[in-house]
């Protein structure tokens, strides 16, 4: 089945033990689009993300990237195919400087990485000032910027973020969302899981509401925000 979407993960079924967490879950993202996965706790949001990235064994379903079947690839190989992943926690190298964190992000690249690093510094100017400082000493928001920057260093075509705003203040959150929009405008597709559903759907081109590992609602961010049923059940009125 040929697919016009840039990323297409269809009919995913799988979990950690015997019980499946994902139940016929489908996620697609187009080029330069921001896709947001929301849903109640334990809905399998992060699991779906891990499945897309190959950190979870799938019993059923397939994942294609730019038309190529990558279902059998390891996470490392998916990075080489153009996927970038920012884990929710432990997403920086704490004893290494900001600059070294970015270098490690580009570990698999053989060519010159200076332009990419300048682009990351343009995106997150504060990191340029703190380039020599160990990432572990930065504030939570700055650390998230390092984590996103590290993932951008491989020049991914698809950036996946697992709750990038967990534990940061609302101001930092808005700022991070602005940056994410900026990244998407440069042509990179975004797939992210968010707890702050309302704010995330505001910037989403497409939103997925997952419940118990299955797709419950799929629509544009604005449409989901406008849907009274979604508002009542998932956005707290």
């Amino acid at each position: 089945m040929s697919d016009s979407h840039y990323l297409s993960a269809t009919g995913m079924r799988g979990g950690y033990g015997k019980a499946d967490i994902l139940d016929n879950c489908t996620l697609t993202v187009d080029k330069g689009q921001i896709a947001v996965i929301v849903g109640p706790n334990g809905a399998g949001k992060s699991t779906a993300m891990k499945a897309v990235f190959g950190m979870l064994h799938l019993r059923q379903g397939r994942v294609t990237l730019d038309g190529e079947d990558i279902t059998a690839l390891s996470p490392q190989d998916r990075v080489k195919k153009g996927m970038g992943f920012v884990p929710q926690v432990n997403n920086v190298f704490p004893s290494m400087s900001v600059e070294e964190n970015l270098e490690m992000g580009a570990f698999i690249r053989e060519n010159d990485i200076r332009t990419t690093m300048e682009q990351v510094f343009d995106l997150f100017p504060v990191l340029k000032d703190k380039r020599r400082q160990p990432a572990g000493e930065l504030s939570g928001g700055q650390r998230q910027q390092v984590a996103v920057g590290r993932a951008l260093m491989t020049q991914p075509r698809l950036l996946m973020l697992d709750e990038p705003t967990a534990g940061v203040s609302p101001i930092v959150m808005d700022e991070l969302f602005d940056r994410i929009i900026e990244i998407a405008r440069s042509g990179i597709s975004i797939l992210m899981v968010e707890q702050n559903a309302r704010q995330a759907l505001e910037i989403a081109d497409i939103g997925y509401v997952l419940v118990q590992g299955a797709n419950r609602y799929t629509d544009t961010g604005q449409a989901l925000l406008a849907d009274p049923e979604v508002r009542r059940t998932f956005l707290g009125g």
Binding site: Q76, P87, V92, F93, M104, F107, I108, R150
Partner: peptide, 22 residues
């Protein structure tokens, strides 16, 4: 060196080092 930094990265955060292709 790149190899040395990879060692430090691995020591710091094994999972992230794997994600970075080390």
């Amino acid at each position: 060196t790149k190899s040395g930094k990879a060692m430090r990265a691995y020591s710091d955060n094994e999972d992230l080092a794997l994600l970075s292709g080390i």
